[in-house]
Every structure is written in C-alpha cells, then in structure tokens.
Design a protein around this nucleic acid. Structure first.
Length: 469
RNA sequence: GGUCCCUUCGUCUAGCGGUCUAGGACGUUGGCCUCUCACGCCGAAAACACGGGUUCGAGUCCCGUAGGGAUCACCA
C-alpha cells in the first residue's frame, strides 16, 4: 500500500468535536502508519454557517492533540487550494463535464415545491425522492441535478463494515449545484477527493448512506473510486449520538478542564480500536500498531470515568516538571504568584490523588494562599485537648535548623513520646491548622513545602483560635 | 415509514469454529497498607440480545426476530 493519501475534512461551522477528533486521529494514524500523506481540507461551502473562529479552533485542536497535517491551510501542496470556497473553478469544470456527457441537467423546481411534494410523499408512505420531472426538459436555468442510475446495485466494499450493497432504485437525482452557484456536499467531496488524489476515505458512518451516490458520481466523472472505511459513531450515555447536551464535546473544553492531549488521544483511539489488551499507548505505539483490521464496526459510548483514569495515568507518569509547566496557566488564572519550581514541588505530592490539572489546583489552594478554615474540621481537631500538642510542636519547630522531612519526623516523634499520643492524634490537628481541612499530602511534605515561616504562622494562628478548656 | 449499519460484563473491549467453566480495562465492591485523602497490592460480583439453522463441535458462520443507531435537504 504505497502513497496512502487520506484527509480530514471538517466544515468550520462549530468547534472541533470529540467525534471529529477521533475521525481525524484515525486518518492521521493511518497516514503515519503507512508513511502516507495526511491532508486537512476545509469544507466551507456553507458560507452562512462557516466562520474563521471555527476554522482556527479546528486547527488549534488538532495541533493540541499532536496531529500535524502535510497539506492544508498554511501548507499549500500540489493539490490545493484546501478550502472549498477557493475551488469553485474546479467544481464548475466538473459540472460542465457532467452537463456535457448528459449526466447532469437543470431543474427549475423551487425548494417550496420540493418540500411540498416530499411531505406529500411521506404522508402517503411513498419514498420521498425527487420525481425527475425536469430530467428531460432541456432547461438552461435553475439548479443542476445529477442524473442517477436507478437500475442495478451499487456495492461499497467498506474496509470496516464489509460489503454493503445498495439497490440503485433508492437513488434519486440529487442537486449538485445550488441556485447560488455553489456545489453541494456530495458533489464537492467527490471532486475534491478525486482531484486531491485520496486513496482512502475514512469518515463517520453517518456517511455510509451517501457513499453509493458518491460512487455514481465518481463513475460519471470517470474517476477511480477510493477505498472507503466508515467509522462507527461515538454515543452519549443514552446511546444517542454524542452531542452538546451530553456535556463537554469540544476538544478544547477538555483542555480547559485539565486533561492532557495524550489522554484524549489515548482514550479516543481505544474507542473503536484495540490492540489486544493494551490500554495505554504512546503516539508512537499507536502509529506502530494501528490497523483498520482491528477497528470495531459497532458504536461506542463515551465514558468520562475512563478518560479520567487515563488522564490520572498521564499526570502521574509524565515528568513532574512538565506537569508543572502545564499547570502554570491555571496558577496564573487563579491569580497566584508562584514559580514553576514551587509548583513542581506541589505536583510531586498532589498528583497521585488528582485526575486532572484542575483537580490539582483545587486540592492545592493552601499551598498558594491562606487557607479557609473548614469549621467541622476545626471543631473536631482544634480542641483544648490538642492545644498543648500544637504548642509543644511549635517550640520544637522554632529551633529546627533544616526544615525538611527527616528532622520534621523527629520532632513529631518527640511530641508523640512526650504526650503518649499516636501519630493520627498529632498529624490531624497539624493538618487542619496548615491546610484548613482534613485532606492533604503527607504532613511532613506539607510542612516542608510551606516552609518554616508559613507553617509556624498557621500553627500559631490555630493555637490562638482555640479557646482553652 | 424506506434504506443502511450495529448487537460479548453498567461502559470500552479481547475473542477471527474446538485452548471459553469467555480474558483485560474503567466503574462498583470486600480486604490489606496507612498521619488524613489518595496511590498501590490482593480478592469479589458482573456479559456472548432471542430463535432457528450449518457443523462432530458456534461467542465465533448463515437466516430470521427484537432492540439500538444512522440516513432520507438548494447542511456538511
């Protein structure tokens, strides 16, 4: 399989969707696996709905995920341009060919008339297809329709679904050029995929029903058809196609929620593809093992819990310095002044209990600002009884030369010996004093990161807040 | 409604006719560890949609049924 050419062809009418990312990813992997070319094409013929923001979001999202393209916006190649709105001449030329060989004709039916007939047909239980009334009128004005072949069958040898046979009687004469002079989707994709030399078309299986009509267009134009592979859909928990009402669906939303790109890609690749029992894949491993043979043909429900688990994995396995770097924008957003070295120390002690960058931030406020005291924790652990314990600890810490794990541990043990209290009885009050709550990393780590000054400050304040018995 | 696709634990999946008393992962759950929360470790519950074939033998092949999804635009 040489010279593989595949593409991702989104329409810039919204943000880059999770489903779109997966489609892009499978194409990208296929290209990289086979040393082929990955093309990004922008399907912007619906100019009313297309926006530059959307296009930027798509490019940004793909970049974030680590999917680079070889040809596309900003990377002109031999088959450009890569915006459909810049390819009008190409479409016109192909329309002319169809008009010339009799495979296309003008139609003067108005949208209103068509709509009416469609409804009537539906009501009577007839298939709502165009009746072909303008077929042989030889009109010179109006939209242009493709003259479909209605006899026989069209077979799609799908790389994922297998052989799918369509009866041509279901085909009707679809409009290929609108009143405004722009081509419609089914025609434009064919012209683009053919002229851009695509060898494989991997896309969502919502396009499977379009494929036989597209094949007819390829044939009418005298082009060789590419290989097709239809990926199953990603579903929401209710088994309906994943959409905004299921929550976050834009890839950049996940970035904001504190997910790492490798988590998204790793999670998404496992939605429909597998390599034995392996769950964790680096990009390199994916490229190495990816195959259409192991792509599932059934739809998959998006599972946020598993995504979290994968994100937890990456947060805990990437170098802490990198995680700290990713955290800096979040730190800035909170308005906290801290250097990356300090953040890295926090990462080291916090990440094992966190699944997202945002969770690290939320669990770490007291490392950056004065904590808010949780009343319940204070009531339970900052009591008249624990007061002397804290006071004794303060004395010991005041005179400590190096404020690090081992001497801190020694100090705690000394207090425990003197008071006969167990670790839990000493650590919890300290934890509450330092963090305002009952959950934190190991107490020596908290003390060390906070440092002597802040630690003593908070301990003293806690002591002062306790009313003696 | 027509057409098309899909159907293994709640979820993602392994399985490509015998090695399946069906494996892994997320989640759930019991225990251990323990200065809290976690992590980690050890265990548990949990699935071949149903009915017919084909075959010596079917989760694996075929046909129905049911359920789910997609699609039927001068949107992509």
């Amino acid at each position: 399989m040489d010279n593989v050419r595949v593409r991702f062809a989104p329409s810039p009418t919204g943000y880059l969707h999770i489903g779109g990312v997966r489609t892009a990813l499978f194409n990208w992997l296929y290209a990289r696996r086979h040393g082929g070319t990955f093309i990004l094409r922008i399907e912007d013929t619906d100019q009313a709905r297309s926006t530059d923001e959307s296009m930027n979001a798509i490019i940004q999202g793909m970049d974030w995920c680590g999917m680079d393209y070889d040809e596309g916006p900003g990377k002109e190649g031999p088959h450009g341009p890569y915006f459909q709105t810049q390819r009008l001449d190409i479409y016109k030329e192909h329309i002319d060919r169809l008009l010339a060989n009799g495979r296309a004709y003008r139609c003067k039916c108005t949208p209103e008339e068509l709509d009416e007939r469609r409804k009537a047909a539906m009501a009577e239980g007839r298939p709502p297809k165009y009746d072909g009334r303008c077929r042989d009128l030889g009109l010179t004005e109006g939209v242009i329709r493709f003259r479909a072949v209605e006899e026989g069958k069209t077979v799609v040898n799908d790389l994922i679904k297998g052989t799918v046979t369509f009866d041509n009687s279901v085909m009707d004469d679809l409009i290929i050029m609108r009143t405004d002079g722009w081509p419609t989707y089914n025609f434009a994709v064919v012209v683009d995929d053919a002229t851009m030399g695509m060898t494989h078309v991997l896309r969502g299986d919502d396009h499977l029903n379009n494929t036989p009509r597209q094949i007819q267009i390829y044939e009418a134009l005298g082009y060789k058809t590419p290989e097709f592979g239809h990926l199953s859909m990603i579903l929401g928990p209710d088994k309906a196609r994943l959409s905004k009402r299921h929550g976050a669906t834009s890839i950049m939303q996940y970035k904001e929620m504190g997910y790492l790109p490798e988590s998204m890609v790793n999670y998404l690749v496992r939605l429909g593809w597998s390599h034995g029992d392996q769950e964790i894949f680096s990009m390199q491993e994916m490229v190495e093992h990816f195959s259409l043979d192991t792509v599932s043909s059934s739809a998959a429900v998006f599972n946020p819990d598993k995504l979290k688990w994968i994100n937890h994995h990456y947060i805990n396995n990437k170098p802490a310095g990198e995680i700290a770097g990713l955290l800096m924008p979040f730190v800035a957003q909170e308005g906290w002044a801290a250097g990356q070295d300090y953040v890295e120390k926090v990462v080291l002690v916090q990440r094992e209990k966190c699944s997202t960058l945002v969770e690290i931030i939320e669990a770490s406020r007291y490392f950056f600002v004065e904590p808010e005291m949780d009343p319940k924790s204070a009531e339970k652990f900052l009591t008249a009884e624990t007061n002397p314990v804290l006071q004794r600890l303060i004395e010991l810490l005041e005179f400590m030369i190096v404020f690090t794990h081992e001497p801190l541990e020694e100090a705690f043990h000394k207090v425990m010996e003197e008071t006969g209290l167990k670790m839990g009885k000493v650590a919890q009050p300290v934890r509450v004093a330092l963090t305002g709550g009952v959950v934190s990393p190991g107490i020596y780590d908290v003390l060390e990161i906070l440092g002597r000054e802040k630690s003593l400050d908070r301990l003293k304040r806690a002591v002062a807040s306790i009313t003696p018995a």
